[in-house]
Design a protein around this nucleic acid. Structure first.
Lengths: 126, 126
DNA sequence: AGATGTACTGACAAATTCGTCAGTGGATCG
DNA sequence: CGATCCACTGACGAATTTGTCAGTACATCT
C-alpha cells in the first residue's frame, strides 16, 4: 500500500499522474511546449518558482523521458531543455486536461472569484 | 505562490488536477464509473485504502460536484455514492489519461517489473 | 452478553513534497 | 577587485497529505 504516487503502481492513471504531478510541472511543460528554453530562461518565465524546485522537476521530467537536456560544454555552462519526441505524446493529454479544467474554473467561479479577471500569472491560454 | 494544489489557482491544469489529485481518487472514480456503491462496498473493493482516506476523498469529490451522496434514512445508515452528471464529463478525460498511462507503463517496464503480470489489484482495464 | 457491521469524526503521527539558504567554479562586467 | 550570472547540489525546516487509532449510536447475529 504505497504512500506516494511516486512509487510504481500498476494503475495507468497513477502512472500518468506521477509524471505530471509536481507543483510546477504543468507550467514547465507548458513553457517548453512553445520552444526549448535555458534553465534560467525557464526560471524567469515562471513567476514564483525557485531555482531549486525548477531543477528538481526538470530532472524528474528528464528521468521520465519527457524532456531532453542539451548541454553545450562552455563556460559558463549553457543548458537547454526541450520536449522529447516521447514527451510530445503528452501534449494532447495536457490539452484535454486543460480544456476540462478551464470549464471547471468557469463553473466554480461566481463564488470565490479572486483572480478570475486579473490576467493569469502563468500557463494561461492554450 | 501557493504551496498546495488545493489552493485555487487560475491555471486550468492545476484546477483539473486538484480534482483528481489524491492518493485514491482515481481508483474511487474508476469504481464508481461502473456503478454506484455504498461506502463499505467501495472500501472493500479498493485493497489498501483505509476508511479514513476513503471518506475524506469522497467528501472532497462531493464538494467538487463530481459525486452525489444518497442517504437512506435507516438504521443502520445506508449511504450510496454515484457519479454526478457533471462528474460524467470527467470520465473521457480519465480515459485519455489512462490510455497514456498504460502506454507509459509498457514503455517503463522491461526494467523494474514487479507487478507487470500479476493481475493488477485495481482499476485494471478500461 | 459480546461481537460485528454501518458511516463517520477527531486527534495525532508518519511520509512526502516544497521552499529557503548557503555554497561551487569560472568568466564577464563595472 | 567585488559583483553577477550560470547550472546545480546538499542540508534542513515548513507545509501538506496520508495513515493510524480510538470512539460514536444503534442493530443484528451468535
Amino acid at each position: 500500500m504505497p504512500v506516494s504516487k511516486k512509487e510504481i503502481s500498476p494503475c495507468p492513471i497513477d502512472a500518468m499522474l506521477s509524471v505530471i504531478d509536481g507543483r510546477w510541472k504543468g507550467t514547465i511543460l507548458w513553457r517548453l511546449s512553445e520552444r526549448p528554453l535555458r534553465t534560467s530562461e525557464l526560471r524567469r518565465s515562471i513567476p514564483g518558482i525557485t531555482e531549486r524546485m525548477l531543477i528538481r522537476h526538470l530532472q524528474e521530467l528528464v528521468r521520465d523521458g519527457i524532456l531532453v537536456r542539451h548541454q553545450e560544454q562552455t563556460v559558463p555552462p549553457c543548458v537547454r531543455y526541450s520536449i522529447s519526441k516521447y514527451g510530445l505524446t503528452l501534449v494532447p493529454v495536457l490539452e484535454v486536461i486543460c480544456a476540462w479544467g478551464r470549464n471547471h474554473l468557469k463553473r466554480t467561479s461566481g463564488h470565490g472569484r479572486e483572480w478570475s479577471q486579473a490576467a493569469q500569472p502563468h500557463r494561461n491560454v492554450l
